[in-house]
Design a protein around this nucleic acid. Structure first.
Lengths: 228, 228
DNA sequence: GCAATAGTGTCTATGAGACACTATAGA
DNA sequence: TCTATAGTGTCTCATAGACACTATTGC
């Protein structure tokens, strides 16, 4: 007897790629062009209805994979949006459970633009369908907060990386430069980094030690919900 | 064509009342006894289906009011729980958007135990229906984190209060004692408190100044979602 | 040698916490 | 006068940030 109401799962997917203007690393997100009303022609977050036997996070991972051919390095629930005025009057009311995900640049390359998929610089988006502009804004806020007190930045990098590379991730996300000496000490003091025997050579300078992350520690502490 | 799936909104409601053993302030939550299968007879979080024209937060506030006759001083979305195995096999699959709320003690008195409603000490709950034990654990974790970096503790107090009263709230939530001198300085330095002209007299000691909170500042900073 | 980045040393400002001290009401 | 709590002063320690300095590579 309940009114028509559909439940969808959408995902804000972040990758780091060079900004087309400055060539410095910047946050990008993939959007999907709507091919149906409402908001036909506008760009929207990838997503779709929840499958009957599927968990919410699994649904986010699946539609992420289907629209961008990517698998996330990090995936976390963002928020459930369900106001009765999210869609135009004539459309069915939809509650969206939104996730946010981080993917590696190699993966972002593999999942290049498709027919109705295009990557955009996250801070330079057009107007999006529904309330998706607000959703992206909130996801950016969460990412920028969380990168300061967790190690989610690791999700943008490969297995091993130099401190300069890790610092570049933080700088790109936070949009400000960080002191190399202090950044090094903070990371070393955090106890979340493990020094490897390897070095990155090739630059016109002293080689940099490669680090990896302590795999026994989760990327982010979500308390009792870890693993949900 | 979608499978049967219902959307419910539930709320974890916190109030501060004296612990029956120690008489010191402790966190309490109201639970509702299930009168239907599944889990008939077990205690569960108050909640119910989302009404057709109602926002998610409005639904949380409504069923809070209906089950406990209380209005929340603070209300925030906690998480959306939607695993396919949350309910027993034979039951309909349900996705629950869960909120958490803080209410004042006077209000908690007014909303005393009803026929199928009972208040419990939050850290001494029986086994709950569905995954509600995990949900309460997560809500407690969020509350204890958030009380340290926001001013949500204010939601447990009246319009004006002494620093000792505010400190007692923090101590009850965090379950440890805090240095009065340092607590005072932290609160004063936060810029979120406003000294009033009033004093609380009656104790066998020097009267304590009454403070109120700066109403121009939100109880918690939720970034772009403030007010959603 | 020079340019560039890796990595270290160290000073200062800030905030948390411990704890001694003074102030003032009620009994 | 005594006790209890309000409220102040101050010391120590840990951490963030600024910035000078040394180390090592490619050219």
């Amino acid at each position: 007897m309940s009114a028509p109401l559909s439940l969808a799962v959408s995902t804000v997917i972040f990758a780091l790629r060079p900004h087309p203007g400055t060539r410095r690393p910047a946050l990008w997100i993939p959007l999907v062009r709507r091919i149906r009303e409402p908001h036909r022609g506008l760009w929207a977050l990838p997503g779709g209805p929840l499958a009957p036997e599927e968990g919410l996070a699994a649904s986010a991972a699946r539609n992420l994979r289907e629209t961008t051919r990517l698998a996330p390095q990090y995936l976390e629930q963002l928020y459930a949006f369900g106001g009765p005025d999210r869609s135009p009057e004539e459309a069915q009311r939809t509650v969206s459970v939104v996730y946010w995900a981080l993917v590696r640049p190699e993966e972002a390359e593999a999942g290049a633009d498709g027919v109705n998929v295009r990557w955009f610089v996250a801070d330079e988006l057009p107007d999006l369908a529904f309330d998706h502009s607000l959703i992206v804004e909130y996801a950016l806020w969460r990412l920028r907060n969380k990168v300061e007190y967790s190690r989610i930045a690791a999700a943008f990098l490969g297995e091993t990386f130099t401190l300069a590379e890790l610092r570049a991730v933080h700088e790109a996300v936070l949009q400000r430069s960080l002191d190399p000496a202090n950044f090094r000490r903070q990371m070393e003091a955090s106890g979340r980094l493990v020094a490897t025997e390897g070095f990155r050579t090739g630059g016109r300078h002293r080689p940099a030690r490669l680090y990896r992350h302590d795999r026994s520690i989760h990327l982010a502490d979500n308390g009792p919900l870890t693993g949900q």
